[in-house]
């Protein structure tokens, strides 16, 4: 135990085991599968013509806003958590802090971008 503790304390923050990340990578993966199939069905198989009018009308409803935001949150979590795992695999120096921080910022920026795109639609 002591053998590994030093390493984790230095880069990971004590008590962070990776258990939650592992579980939620699976949960978000399963959720993405459902959301993505829903997305495909709505966009390509319902026969509704896709142009700005219909899409903005749809996005005016709170339900669709919620659907798209959930989609974005799970996709960003799943993708960036995957990058974190690659970083943990290959980066064993202090650069790990840099790269993880970098992708935290990337994630937050994309989330803000998605929110200011989806939320303001008003019919």
């Amino acid at each position: 135990m002591m053998y590994m503790r030093g390493f984790i304390d230095r880069y990971q923050g004590s008590g962070k085991s990776g258990e939650w990340n592992w579980l939620f990578q699976r949960v978000s993966g399963a959720a993405l599968l459902v959301l993505l199939l829903g997305h495909f069905f709505i966009e390509h198989f319902t026969g509704v013509q896709i142009d700005y009018q219909t899409v903005s009308a749809r996005l005016a409803s709170t339900g669709w806003k919620l659907f798209d935001l959930t989609f974005v949150v799970f996709a960003l979590y799943h993708g960036i958590n995957g990058i974190f795992m690659v970083i943990e695999d290959y980066v064993h120096s202090g650069w790990r802090v840099f790269w993880k921080g970098f992708f935290w910022i990337v994630g937050i920026l994309y989330l803000v971008l998605a929110a200011i795109t989806i939320l303001p639609f008003k019919g």
Binding site: M1, M4, F7, I8, Q12, K16, S17, G18, E19, N21, W22, E88, D89
Partner: peptide
């Protein structure tokens, strides 16, 4: 406890 760790089972 020893294997519940980013260098243990989750790797």
């Amino acid at each position: 406890d020893a294997v519940n760790n980013i260098h243990g089972v989750w790797r």
